[in-house]
């Protein structure tokens, strides 16, 4: 963007759209396990995810842009997560929060799906058990960066 001498701001429509889009990534309210509590902490006064424009947690997948898979996904929950992802409207992003969601973590057993990337595509993985809220904020930052840099899901995606 450039400011002209007359006080006008010039930008490509694409950049403005991406800027707007990246500043309003609304997550889906889907708490699974321990990480969900840290996901809640992110909205608290101390961490304040509102600074990134992502404080609007939507309960309906139809209104959400970002799915934060916060915690271990059990075999019984797997189809539900999958269905929620399918119900979200494009463009959509997924953060795999914590060791369990990313790889099964310490629960290498019959009950836990070993990494949600076996059922849905993941954009950003956050390590930790559970990750600190700072870690999750950084992940949201990365998603924003991805949108601004012309990654997938842009409104006016160029071929």
């Amino acid at each position: 963007m450039a400011v002209s001498p007359g006080g006008f701001m010039l930008a490509r429509l694409d950049d403005v759209a991406r800027w707007a889009q990246s500043s309003s990534v609304w997550p889906l309210t889907m708490g699974l396990a321990c990480c969900a509590i840290e996901m809640m902490s992110v909205t608290s006064a101390e961490y304040d995810i509102a600074r990134l424009g992502s404080e609007v947690f939507r309960s309906s997948p139809r209104q959400a842009d970002l799915m934060i898979v916060s915690g271990r996904v059990a075999q019984k929950m797997g189809p539900v997560v999958k269905r929620l992802y399918d119900q979200m409207a494009d463009p959509k992003w997924v953060i795999s929060m914590g060791a369990c969601a990313s790889s099964g973590g310490i629960f290498d057993n019959y009950a836990i799906i070993q990494g949600i990337d076996t059922i849905i595509p993941v954009d950003v993985y956050v390590p930790g058990c559970p990750p600190t809220p700072d870690g999750l904020l950084y992940a949201v930052n990365l998603i924003q960066q991805q949108i601004r840099e012309g990654g997938r899901g842009g409104i006016l995606a160029r071929s």
Binding site: A74, F107, Y110, A111
Partner: peptide
């Protein structure tokens, strides 16, 4: 219930 069955006792 059972949507978060983690198999902790088995592990």
């Amino acid at each position: 219930i059972g949507y978060l069955h983690t198999g902790i006792e088995k592990t």
